[in-house]
């Protein structure tokens, strides 16, 4: 699939803690409107990569271009204002606020608009995520699925151009998972670029255009989902079919 414009260009991005390299010269592109899936075993550096892209962690080396702008040194808050939003692996609701207020915060501060202006956008995001009936409920009392929906609703309310999803399908039932996929497809069809880290492969495969495989902080391979799933690297990492290969890393 061809995309007219690059939403994100990551070049040789590196991060290490002491001698431990968590992100090792990772480079990749993301087209505008494209959905990229990231897979890899635990500790492969997937979430760290998200922290680097969203700006919560600073990189040691390399650069990040976002719609042609160099954002390598831009703060997390400003990246949010530029349209980069993330959902957290473990939902992080404002538990003492209602569902509606949670989304209102995202709209008002994510888009830097007044509370009155944010109101409609918050209501819209709630409708899109089927949370309208729970608008007045305290976010702390929501079920897991609703908390995940709330993560998405808040992301949507910031008017994102790039959405980073961190294992959002984990822990959900089959039906719940399908609902979530539908929602993510809706967001994607609105032209939002997506990067999605996920262990629930069937969910990932039904949405993404391309898959990148990470292991030991490095990019192992990337390509079309059907090719990637057949590749020996993925088999060795996920199924341990060729243990020598892993030891050889």
């Amino acid at each position: 699939m061809l995309f007219e414009e690059n939403a994100l260009t990551v070049t040789e991005l590196s991060k290490s803690y002491g001698t431990f390299i968590v992100t090792n010269e990772i480079s990749f592109n993301l087209g505008k409107g494209e959905a990229l899936g990231i897979i890899g075993p635990n500790g492969a550096g997937k979430t760290t990569l998200f922290n680097l892209i969203s700006g919560t962690t600073n990189s040691d080396k390399g650069s990040i271009q976002y719609f042609g702008q160099d954002i390598t040194k831009v703060s997390a808050r400003q990246r949010c204002h530029l349209g980069i939003t993330r959902s957290f692996q473990v939902p992080q609701p404002f538990s003492g606020l209602t569902t509606y207020e949670n989304v209102l915060v995202a709209a008002a501060f994510g888009q830097e608009i007044s509370e009155a202006e944010a109101k409609d956008k918050a209501v819209e995001a709630l409708e899109l995520t089927s949370l309208t009936s729970k608008a007045r409920q305290l976010a702390g009392s929501l079920t897991l699925l609703d908390r995940k929906r709330l993560e998405l609703a808040r992301s949507i309310a910031t008017a994102p151009r790039l959405l980073l999803l961190d294992e959002i399908a984990g822990g959900l039932t089959e039906t719940e998972c399908n609902e979530l996929i539908e929602l993510i497809m809706t967001i994607k069809n609105n032209g939002v670029s997506i990067i999605w880290i996920e262990h629930v492969l069937h969910a990932l495969l039904s949405v993404v255009d391309r898959i990148m495989v990470l292991d030991f902080g490095q990019k192992i391979t990337e390509g079309k989902p059907e090719d990637i799933m057949k590749s020996p690297e993925v088999s060795s990492i996920y199924l341990g079919l060729d243990e020598e290969n892993i030891d050889g890393q």
Binding site: S54, T56, A76, R77, C80, H81, T85, R86, F88, Q92, P93, F94, S95, G96, L97, E101, L104, V105, A106, A108, F109, G110, Q111, E112, S114, E115, R154, T158
Partner: peptide, 25 residues
């Protein structure tokens, strides 16, 4: 009751989420 108040309540409940949603902590 003001917009700053909204930020304060968000901050009270979850600083990480508040920062990622564009609040200047």
């Amino acid at each position: 009751l003001s917009k700053t108040g909204l930020a304060l309540m968000a901050l009270r409940d979850n600083e990480i989420a508040a920062a990622s949603l564009g609040i200047n902590i």
